[in-house]
Design a protein around this nucleic acid. Structure first.
Lengths: 239, 239
DNA sequence: ACAAAAGTGTTCGTACTACACCCATGC
DNA sequence: GCATGGGTGTAGTACGAACACTTTTGT
């Protein structure tokens, strides 16, 4: 057996990393959290938060760790995308990366931003251009996944604060799908899923009729997460 | 720079493999191609075809290679699922595996079966129990992916012979989804997509009215592959 | 003529679309 | 009182669900 093992030694010369596409939603726009690298390769480039996986660390745990180290957040939505492993993608040797994406509430993040050493910043998805490694590809895959996910699972709430208006929710869908939706139909359909809980409160201090605040019903959320749903909607007319 | 690299050496001690869930459809049942391992670890266990990725080999290429070596097939449908990397999943060291699944036509495979050394066999999906490593988990993930994919993309054809009947196609959906579907609605909906081409031929030698044979329209296939579709259908009454 | 699967048409209900107006608040 | 976004009701339509009978072949 030890002999059998010996013959495989040449394969045990690779490393792997996790990289995390952290999505946030703020100011009506979909954002991705990027760090500016302070070491080679790709020093000074913007990149996805990520790092080498420890020898005895589970992949999901490594992704959680990176998230904690970058944002101070724990227990957020995290899902593996897939791996990227083109030879030559990393100049130190063969490194494949396991890509994840997560959904966080931007407000929670602000509280812990101070704990970070490197430069960290939210970037509008539409403004992202050149990134380190193959990270642009990863962002693209993450974005496609998110577009499908919010149609299929009630994950949108992970991006919204604990109390939000129907218009906030609609703006989120519009930002992710890059479309405009028809207000009445959006509300009707979303409310008919019984997923929203009317908090009985309203906005204050706005220069117009204040909107009702909602949270989502956790029990119903889990039901729908199980069975999945199909939230489709035709694009409305451009405003 | 060389010094910077040095400090990362401890990470370059891992290996990775590709494993492939090869789906086939025969005799009205969904099948997975398994090999019986002839070396440790897990000697004599049934397992997914897979092997270590070479140092300068792309992940997709490695998956293609495994497919070629196991089945003799090339140019088949292949898609990455995700990676599995629990520490301790492989007794030789840290090995993460990048899982793929592919869709093949069982008839094509039979022709090349002789080229394989180990025992290779199709197993009904429902009969798969204990497999090597974490391969049961991988099969489960592949199965869930396939269930969603045939609702979303016209990939079902990859599993069918070049000429098939509508009933064949219906049986495929029924096998993958594990439901019974209503004949008339299935036909109406599928035909309305303009995806099928009537070959003008029929079955011969069957003891009942012969069914028309269809192939799929490649141009329309690619269109729908781009834009995606949503083929949903309520379960019909049990027969 | 009988068995066995192929094939087809219609009604009903529901859910999505499209559309225009009144309401509550801040300034 | 006016500007700003919040909030609602309805008619038309299109598509999915449910359902039963006729057709073509082999034996």
């Amino acid at each position: 057996m030890v002999q059998a093992k010996k013959s495989f030694d040449s394969f045990f010369k690779s490393a792997f990393t996790v990289d995390n596409v952290i999505f946030g939603f703020d100011d009506g726009k979909l954002k991705v959290l990027l760090i500016r690298r302070n070491e080679d390769p790709y020093a000074d480039f913007w990149a996805l938060p990520g790092y080498f996986v420890q020898q005895h660390e589970d992949l999901d745990d490594a992704a959680q760790r990176v998230l904690r180290e970058t944002t101070g957040l724990e227990n957020v939505y995290l899902e593996q995308l897939r791996s990227f492993g083109a030879p030559g993608r990393h100049e130190f040797g063969r490194v494949i990366t396991v890509a994840y994406y997560s959904l966080v509430k931007v407000a929670d993040f602000e509280l812990h931003a101070a704990s970070i050493a490197e430069e960290v910043a939210w970037h509008n998805v539409e403004d992202i251009s050149v990134l380190a490694f193959d990270h642009e590809d990863i962002v693209q895959v993450a974005l496609n996944r998110l577009k499908r996910r919010i149609r299929t699972r009630p994950v949108g709430f992970e991006l919204l604060p604990p109390a939000f208006t129907l218009t906030d929710l609609q703006h989120l869908y519009e930002a992710v799908w890059e479309v405009d939706l028809e207000k009445r139909n959006f509300r009707k359909k979303f409310l008919s899923m019984n997923l929203l809980r009317d908090l009985g409160r309203s906005q204050t201090g706005v220069a117009h009729r204040p909107a009702k605040l909602y949270s989502f019903d956790e029990k119903r959320y889990r039901e729908l997460e199980e069975e999945g749903f199909n939230f489709e909607m035709k694009e409305g007319k451009r405003k």
